[in-house]
Design a binder for these strands. Structure first.
Length: 878
RNA sequence: GCCCGGGUGGUGGAAUGGCAGACACGGAGGUCUCAAAAACCUCUGAGGGAAACCUCGUGUGGGUUCGACUCCCACCCCGGGCACCA
């Protein structure tokens, strides 16, 4: 048996002497030889987690000599045990953060807890406990799990939004907004979740009119509530989406749709009194189609419109109108907004004057008009709007055509006709496209349609007469932030019978959320006189403190700024620190926040910029929305009983395997289907890497081999190593973690192949060592514990692998000196030829033609295309 | 209805317009073993062929191109968002 046959006779060398002292004492019973070391993830992982914490290697430092990178994952709601969604989200962030450190960035990678919120209250009620107790206990559990996952957080910057040290600054920001006129208290129809027993913002009503959190059907209630005037920023929030090339297109589209900008005009209609005579008073509508004004045959008010009751009370129309109003009031938001629903309405007995032609138009009330969009009043043009069309048919109202499609037969009859000669159309549906204006007075013959010549001409004409103006309307509503629940940030305001609504002065902050509240009895701040009985900060008289708390989304709309200066107790954060770290370079979280949290945060950032606290427009430069983790095609949930517990997987395979698995199974933005066999497979590979590196360590230490061989096999492995270095570097940059891991698997396979085909003793030791080191470095962001152990203990390199330098990609070393070219004849591969990489084209063509001689014999060669390094394409005729 | 995604082997998934199916799972066979596990090795899109090879193949139908999973047009299916927004 040859002396170097390492697969049978292991060369042993003592290990102790190579172990760094500080680490040596962490291992109670060390094996004496490398070959005795088995891959034991539990041992390795707990050891290194403790070491990292002790050495504080993840403390972020503002270092102006380095480029900075702020990597952030959406902070979690501490709901209890972590789930696979967390594992995926935070692992992705961890890979990005760890690689950035190795690439020489000054990295901020913080974590915290979105700790206020309703589930805590509900859980407290169930378990006869207190929301604070439940929340803090969950934070402990979850933090421990995150540590077991090996995430590289700077725990020293951690925040908990339910800590007074944090939420006091939320109150402070609220006051700043108030100073700027962005806080408003008003009464209007709002979304009420009967299950959560609180109101919701528009964004928090999702899908078919259900609560974002509990999925109950939301109802409308008329209540006085607190709002933040996000609509003041509607245009900027829309425009600045263009400043975010690093955001997924669909998230930007969703936000743009949500903001819903419409260009059009306001048109003033003069109201007639009960006797039908013009009374000088005006009612204004918003329309995107002022060009169709000549086709307005009725006028509509929303059932909630404040004038409706006044118009009909005591008249013969009262009963019919109030029936429509009452019916609409009884309906839920869902029913009301069903698109295909039958429209109901009633005539009010009143008329308005159409400003373009002086016609008297009847005023109706109808449930398809929404009070909270535009002015709650609509000019109805049944020939040009499908809803009006249906309504006109139902109630037998005229349908005068005003904009006719170019190829419509009706144009033959009406082209150039400026007076109204027809009040009906032969159409099945309304026509809302672009066309020719008819029966439209002086505007007849112009182009009509959205943003058309006619639209502008009519609006200008109205503007000259003071009866209209260009206008822009947004679908976006103001952000309703008050919540009738206990576990939230108290709104710092006082209701004074003399001074009215008074902000709590800055000096009196924070308004502390009292702890002696029994939520199990359904208590809120409104049941707590010690809290709400107060004095007015302005006049000193007896007053009542506001008892609503703020929407949790206010807490999450600025936490990324607090991380920059998390322990500041005299300001939310210091400007210098925010300037250094912000904006967030890479933000990672779920698509469910495409509107909600991401829109609120963009808004808050813009306000704080205008307050002068920061100097940038957008908080998150790049956004990655990760897909869900599913089981059997369905979301994991306790009710389905298909939950795979991360803790269990860590216990069985170790965190490194779980991390690598979850990154490998799918690209990060796609949904991922959980597979137990898949984890098993990943665990096999991790073990394979371990054995490869330990075997190489042993082999190189024994010196049994050649210093450098330069033979074909070695060249192949050398090239593969460099190719993979480039691939992994590039793939992490574009978040293709799955292919990055696949590439490392290929390198592993290549190294095994090399060791299989070259006998021990003839192997290139320098190359093997290089491969082992690079593998360890490339793996570090993915499997941090394994890499650290291989780096420090097995390969005996100094320092932490996580502060080592990321391997540099050498394109020349990755380039092959021979390439295999496919030879196509008329698009089909008919042969292959291996040539030197630098061979000139003519020679390649000659070789290629000879190779496929059988396929081109006797045929005319029409064209030959050479794609360097790839193929030769021959086109023949006949 | 409108706006985004997405349709590739038994499965998860790879592919700057250049050999479709990298990598992995699963499956089949083998080595080692008294045996098993582990590990290692070989094969694995479909059809044909003894084989070299040949034919077909990325939702469907067209188009551009020497060449299309990739680009263009039309359509079908799945997922998501918005939707009585004037």
């Amino acid at each position: 048996m040859p002396p170097c046959s390492s697969s049978h006779v292991r060369t042993r060398f003592p290990l102790e002497s190579h172990l760094p002292k500080s680490r040596a004492d962490k291992r109670p019973r060390r094996p004496r030889f490398v070959s005795d070391l088995r891959y034991e993830p539990e041992l390795i992982e707990t050891k290194w987690q403790a070491a990292w914490e002790r050495d504080g290697i993840y403390h972020a430092v503002e270092d102006s000599s380095k480029p900075k990178k702020y990597v952030l994952e959406m902070f979690p709601y501490p709901s209890g045990d972590i789930h696979m969604g967390h594992v995926r989200n935070y692992t992705i962030g961890d890979v990005v953060a760890r690689q950035a450190v190795m690439k020489g960035f000054s990295v901020l990678h913080p974590i915290g807890w979105d700790a206020f919120g309703l589930p805590a209250e509900n859980a407290a009620i169930k378990s006869n406990s207190h929301p604070a107790k439940w929340t803090y206990a969950n934070i402990e559990t979850q933090a421990a799990s995150f540590k077991r996952m090996g995430f590289s957080y700077d725990w020293g910057r951690s925040v908990r939004s339910c800590d007074v040290e944090y939420y006091r600054w939320g109150q402070w920001i609220f006051l700043k907004m108030w100073e700027r006129g962005l806080v408003e208290r008003k009464k209007s129809p709002v979304n009420w979740c009967p299950s959560c027993q609180t109101v919701l913002a528009n964004e928090q009503v999702i899908g078919d009119g259900v609560c974002w959190r509990c999925k109950s059907v939301v109802v409308k209630r008329d209540l006085e509530q607190w709002y933040l005037k996000i609509t003041d920023y509607a245009q900027e929030l829309l425009d600045d989406l263009d400043k975010l090339p690093g955001w997924p297109e669909r998230v930007k589209t969703m936000q743009a749709n949500w903001i819903g900008r419409s260009e059009g005009a306001e048109v003033d209609f003069e109201l007639c009194d009960a006797g039908g005579e013009p009374c000088g008073e005006r009612i204004t509508v918003f329309t995107t189609r002022p060009d169709t004004l000549f086709g307005c045959s009725f006028f509509l008010l929303a059932p909630e419109h404040p004038r409706v009751r006044e118009f009909v009370v005591g008249t013969e129309y009262e009963t019919a109108v109030m029936t429509v109003v009452d019916r609409a009031a009884r309906e839920t938001a869902v029913e009301r907004q069903m698109g295909e629903r039958e429209k109901n309405g009633a005539f009010t007995g009143r008329f308005v004057i159409n400003p373009v032609n002086g016609e008297k138009v009847p005023v109706w009330v109808s449930d398809y008009v929404l009070m909270d969009y535009g002015t709650g009043a609509v000019m109805a043009v049944p020939s040009g709007d499908q809803r009006d069309f249906e309504f006109a048919h139902k109630y037998d109202l005229p349908i005068p055509p005003v904009v006719v499609a170019d190829d419509d037969a009706l144009l033959g009859e009406l082209a150039g006709v400026s007076e109204r000669v027809r009040s009906d159309v032969p159409w099945e549906t309304a026509f809302d496209g672009a066309g020719v204006m008819v029966q439209s007075g002086a505007f007849t013959g112009m182009r009509g349609g959205k943003a058309s010549e006619g639209m502008r001409a009519v609006t200008e004409s109205l503007a000259e007469q003071g009866r209209g103006r260009f206008s822009i309307n947004f679908r976006l509503r103001d952000w309703l932030i008050s919540r009738q629940r206990y576990w939230g940030n108290p709104i710092p305001a006082v209701h004074c019978p003399t001074c009215g609504l008074v902000p709590v002065p800055e000096a009196q902050l924070p308004v502390v959320l009292p702890m002696d509240i029994d939520v199990t009895k359904g208590e809120t701040l409104a049941d707590h006189p010690e809290f709400y009985e107060t004095t007015c900060p302005t006049c000193g008289g007896a007053a009542r403190r506001e008892t609503d708390t703020m929407d949790t989304f206010t807490c999450s709309s600025w936490y990324y700024l607090r991380y920059c200066d998390a322990r500041n107790d005299s300001a939310p954060f210091e400007r210098d620190k925010a300037d250094y770290w912000m904006p967030v370079d890479q933000y990672i979280g779920g698509i469910e926040h495409a509107i909600l949290h991401l829109l609120y945060s963009r808004f808050t950032t813009k306000v704080l910029r205008d307050v002068g606290l920061i100097g940038f427009d957008e908080p998150f430069t790049n956004l990655l929305t990760q897909g869900m983790v599913k089981k059997d095609g369905e979301t994991m949930s306790k009710s389905r009983g298909n939950v795979v517990a991360p803790e269990e997987m860590i216990g069985k395979y170790g965190a490194d395997t779980l991390r690598a698995y979850i990154l490998f199974m799918a690209p990060p933005d796609k949904d991922l289907e959980w597979s137990y066999e898949g984890v098993e497979g990943m665990h096999r590979w991790v073990g394979r890497v371990w054995r490869l590196v330990t075997d190489i360590a042993e082999e190189t230490a024994s010196g049994c081999g050649v210093a450098a061989s330069g033979d074909t096999e070695a060249k192949k492995l050398h090239r593969e190593m460099h190719r993979v270095t480039g691939k992994v570097t590039f793939d992490i940059e574009r978040f293709q973690f799955n292919t990055a891991i696949a590439a490392m698997m290929e390198l592993t396979n290549a190294a095994y192949d090399y060791r299989k085909s070259v006998p021990a003793g003839s192997r290139d030791l320098a190359l093997l060592k290089d491969v082992a080191q690079r593998m360890t470095l490339l793996l570090a962001p993915f499997t941090p514990h394994l890499s650290e152990e291989l780096w420090g203990v097995i390969l005996m390199e100094p320092g932490s692998v996580h502060t080592a330098q990321w391997p540099v990609f050498d394109a020349a070393a990755a380039a092959a000196d021979e390439v295999e070219l496919a030879i196509q004849v008329n698009g089909k591969v008919r042969g292959k030829v291996t040539v030197p990489a630098d061979m000139d084209q003519d020679a390649i063509v000659a070789l290629a033609l000879a190779e496929v001689a059988g396929h081109i014999e006797g045929k005319e060669i029409k064209k030959v295309v050479v794609v360097p390094g790839k193929l030769v394409s021959v086109v023949v005729a006949g």
